[in-house]
């Protein structure tokens, strides 16, 4: 139901040969760069400074340093289990670092009280890998949830806002408002999750594997949506993914994690030009 791609581009073949894929990614990157010239670097809204974290004896992060400014989309890449999602959990203060600082809008979130953390989280929107929509609530109630919790908006205004964001993520409100999450397709669930994340207009958006488990066409739709969020809402976005093609489409900057460290940090173009054997191996 209304699960069509937004963009006019052709869907990418999932099993295209490596060379063809690399050419296509580069071409797409060029188009993206021509269409949206990079903004000058502003002050960083989210910043990780020399962050270390371990779970018991398992060292997950070994001194990660990363910054994201307003209007930037940073894609964190890496293999499975290298600590990509952990970075998001640190930004949300669902985890505390063993060492180092996690700064959000200039505040070290390790040092703020529990109540302040709840308020700080209202400034962020998170899209989970599995969407994490509330099973017992319909689409309207899911999307309206942050507004109901944190604002005094009247029901009519909330209803209008929910319709507005559902339209923004290319869903037809009348078709989906009363549906339960179990009745939605994977792509629709992701879009409802994005609608819920942006409904209260947070300046920071976090995406955990937003395209995992989706077909190439729906993946492209979600990528287009993330680009639209940047161009129209100018949000600061951190996207965790292992999908190189998606990262090339949406990122203004990429960070590749290996063994708990960022081994590459730069624009997607720089990443594709990088000669480091691990980076090359990851991209191929």
């Amino acid at each position: 139901m209304n699960d069509q791609p937004i963009g006019s581009g052709e869907p990418v073949e999932p099993n295209a040969p490596d060379e063809a894929l690399a050419d296509e990614v580069r071409a797409e990157l060029r188009r993206s760069l021509e269409a949206e010239p990079a903004e000058p670097k502003k002050s960083e809204i989210v910043e990780l400074r020399d962050v270390w974290l371990s779970f018991g004896a398992h060292q997950v992060l070994n001194g990660i340093t990363l910054g994201v400014a307003r209007g930037e989309t940073v894609c964190i890449l890496g293999g499975s289990g290298v600590g990509k999602s952990t970075v998001l959990r640190l930004i949300l203060r669902l985890l505390l670092p063993d060492q180092g600082e996690v700064m959000v809008e200039g505040r070290d979130i390790s040092a703020v009280s529990y109540v302040d953390v709840l308020q700080l989280r209202e400034r962020m929107g998170m899209v989970f890998q599995g969407s994490a929509l509330f099973d017992s609530l319909n689409v309207h109630d899911n999307v309206a949830f942050p507004l109901v919790e944190h604002t005094d908006m009247p029901d009519d205004a909330i209803f209008d806002r929910v319709r507005e964001v559902l339209s923004f993520v290319d869903l037809v409100p009348e078709d989906v408002l009363s549906l339960l999450p179990a009745e939605l397709s994977g792509g629709m669930r992701k879009r409802v999750a994005i609608a819920r994340a942006i409904v209260h207009e947070p300046p920071i958006l976090l995406f955990d594997e937003p395209t995992s488990g989706l077909d190439p066409i729906t993946t492209r739709t979600i990528d287009e949506l993330i680009l639209k969020l940047r161009s129209e809402l100018s949000v600061c976005a951190v996207v965790v993914t292992h999908n190189v093609r998606s990262a090339a489409r949406i990122a203004t900057e990429t960070a590749l994690i290996k063994d708990g460290q960022i081994i590459f940090n730069g624009s997607p173009e720089e990443m594709f030009a990088c000669e480091d054997p691990y980076v090359r191996s990851f991209l191929s």
Binding site: L94, L118, E122, A132, D135, F145, P146, E149, L206
Partner: peptide
Amino acid sequence: GAMKVTEQVDALRTMGVD
């Protein structure tokens, strides 16, 4: 428990809800 394993509890936290 089902909410916990499907990250719905984390979703509550990330929306500033205890």
